[in-house]
Amino acid sequence: MLLQLTISGLSQGAIYALVALSLTVVYRSTTIVNFGHGDFVMAGAFVSYVLTVMLGVAFLPAAVLAVIAMFLLGLCFSRGLIRPIRGGPHIGYALMCIAVGYVLRGIARIVWGREVLPMPSVFDMPPVFIGNLVITGDAMFIIGTTTVLLAIFFAILALTDIGKMVQAVYQSQRGAQLIGINVDRFNDMAWGVGAAMGAMGGILIAPVSLLHPDLGASFLIKGFAAMTLGGFGSLHGAVIGALLLGVSEQYAGAYINSALIDITAYLIIVFVLLVRPHGLFGHKTVVKV
């Protein structure tokens, strides 16, 4: 049973990881937390639904197109709506993100509001049985895909020039500006990448969860919890935090009470922030008073 729960927890955690990581990418470059990110996740899933089910595009090209579309949306969002309110109070950003999320959800609701849409299963693999253990096709697909995506992401970061640039901006925006990096454009790109990665999470979960306009709402909180657990702003922390969250939800649900699954994320947030605010891998930022 323990192993079984771990596998399904990891498969959930993989989705949370994409969400948490995409939130972190934006946060690290812009110090903005995207409170509307759940709806970006939902939007990604809907775009891929439109392409596969309504226009008949095959899953893979549809997914790629949806991710590109969401990348562009993220880019436009940053250029058109975040840049103009720069310099205002910081919480203006939070509300702007929420408002855009609302617009996305509103559009989804007007078009599909009264139906729950099924997303065709991508790989209809039969589950693998190892003794008592069942590994489902969905779990293999999600864990596999996420592993590949994360490997690519961290490889780019560690091995390429782009990665070095990212490191430079993360170290100091002003420093990066001095050596000729266009930080504004960099931030736009971060929004684009964030939106695209969130969309990947949405596309992966949609065949499992069915599609509805409120799909994203719960992922936002899971993303927050994962970031908090892993250490706000830490990229690998977000991933590890997400996996831990996915697994602990399953354990709490099975060993304590199934009513706890829904609030595991909240309990983790409160507990971590009160006990170890910088999380597992975050840097302690000290403001001396």
């Binding site: 079984q4 959930q12 989705i15 979960i205 799909l215 709402a217 399953q250 199934s258 829904d262």
Partner: peptide, 12 residues
């Protein structure tokens, strides 16, 4: 209990 929005029912 399985709450709204849960995408996995393994524990249950």
């Amino acid at each position: 209990v399985m709450e709204r929005g849960q995408t996995d029912a393994t524990a249950q």
